[in-house]
Design a protein around this nucleic acid. Sequence first.
DNA 1: AGCGAGCCGTAC
DNA 2: GACGTACGGCTCGCTG
Length: 677
Amino acid sequence: MLKYLIYDTETTGLNIVTDKPFLFQYGLVDEDLNLLDVKVFKAKDKKNKQKFIDYIKKVDTIVGHNIKFDIHMAINSGIDISFFKDKNYIDTAVLARLVISHDQQRDSSFSIALKKLAVRYLGKDTAQEEHLLKAELSQLTLEHKANMKQYFIDKGVWDLSLSGRAETKVINEVYNNWNKVFHKYIHLKQARLDFLKLNPAPNYSDCSNVWTYAETDIYLTHGLFKLWYHDVVKLQQVPTLIRISKATIPYVLMERKGMSVNLNKLIQDRNMIIKEMSKTKIIDPRNGFEYSIGQHAKLKELYEYETGMLLKSADKQTRKEIESKSPSARKANYIAKMEKYLSSYITRILNKLSIIDNEYKVFTQYNFAGTVTGRLSSDFQQFPKEPLELANGYVVNIRDWFVVPKGNKYMFYFDYSQMELRLQCEWTNIVSGSPDLNMARAFSPYKCHCYDSNGNKVPYQGEPNKYFKTRDWYLDEDPAIKWQPTDLHALTTKNAFPGVSEMDPDWGHYRQLGKRANFACNYGAAAPKIADALNVDFPTAQALVDGYKKAFKGVVDFSKWLYKHTRTTPSTPNLLLRRYYSRNKHLLQNWLVQGSGADILLEKTTEVYEYIKDKPWWNLMISVHDELGLTCDGIPKAQLDKEVKAIQNIMVYQLSAVDVTVDVEATETSWANKVDY
DNA sequence: AGCGAGCCGTAC
DNA sequence: GACGTACGGCTCGCTG
């Protein structure tokens, strides 16, 4: 009897809102996980599409490899999203993350891609099939490119004096990388648009063997499902599979909301950067060659020539150190950042840009199976926070480009305050029965007391919503001392440099070292790396590590506990019971913290979704590891305050010693202008 | 032209 | 044994 529906689509592209499926494939699976039937049909085949929808209605569990993408495609094909709500989702990519040993997952050859998993775990190599499909598309694309060039020639806009490599370079840039180079080829702009309108770029729907290919994917997905589904129970990963299943539709909706772009501002900034970049060139004085910023090997050699030093890298830290001796390094420092903005951010946003209802939007996907810890991965997580200042004083801030969507009034950002530090504190409590005192007291008056209005002594028992901030607290072990949040960085600093006090004129410098050492040590760094990263000698690095260990004895105990634990136990669960099958103590110490944070955010996102689902004036918009962004329409202030507070309260995660609390920021204009709410 | 390794720079 | 998790762009060398 039918119990599970596996489905997949073949599509015209990867944009989750503007691309459409041209093929649907599905497999019917019974309660014993046997494949009953496989079907492939064209998206425009209405009769078969209705049959497919009927199957969706019948089952309560849908299976797929990166199933979120295929839900988007079904919606884009006109299937109502309501058919997908209240279903269970089993993503075979997620299954892979849950059941395969986490040490294996870290292997550099490990890949979550369907075909790669099939080779490795099903012994089915479909590389030839994939190769044929790609080869066919490549051939079509080559023809399309040649046709574009011919069109330019026919229209009289092509520079006929070009030949050989120069000619190839132009057509390649125009065809493959238009959004990066269009300022160089303004004379081709209109002809290119006209050509693309008459001759859309080929896609997989134009390839002949795509039907076989499509069918194969169902067999492979079924193979992985059958291989791994029962392991989820055996390996105690059920809570995590359920958590991800429940988050599926909230994330589909978040992804479809997208982000709105102020294109005028982006183009204005782009123009300023290009103008500035054209002023500076790196020329090798020995041969007159111009180097691009990506030619690290050649640049390193040039820096060595100019400084007379042996360098280990051509990266920005190295360049900074030799700036005074090497004119080229100085130029590179300036160009590198502009190049990064142009290549990695501006061009990428332009490539992703869609026009939806007269609004410029970009969409991203969140990969539920992208990481070994359970964090989500996405291509929108690494946009720089710090603005870029050009030599003429012009400031480029990427966050200026992302604005409140049309029809909405606000963007809200709910972010967890020092989440991973608080989670690490929780782990010290779990393994020792009491939290690291210094860490706990950085966040709350742990083991402190206050007095009520009658003068009665009241112990601190954990008070949500920062209630404790309205009172004075005194340390239990010494009531004469008033509690103040521990300055964790100062603590490490003073331990590492006993002679240095806050009165010291260089205190700021030393505290900076203590702060950076704290971060590094939390990630598991030891003295050699600290010496390297902080650019201090080995004894100083060792002193900082010792200072950290003295400051946070609970963390040292956590480390020792984990060492013993991994010697005796094959797996360890994080706070939300996602299990990591590894005996690597060093990695686990980080995974338990990072992965707990990830699962908390995932679960809380679903809870926030449940809260806003009958309040259409709220929409999920973005999620980045420890923060959740939402848009909201213009609703009455009192109601807004109440609902913001409610979301904040939903998100707070209660731990035993300290809670993971939530800060709220908002803007009515752009991301760059958000302020505390 | 396609692919993968290696380097680099960004986020949390 | 020795700083965690990611993503994307670029260059370069290899392959066909």
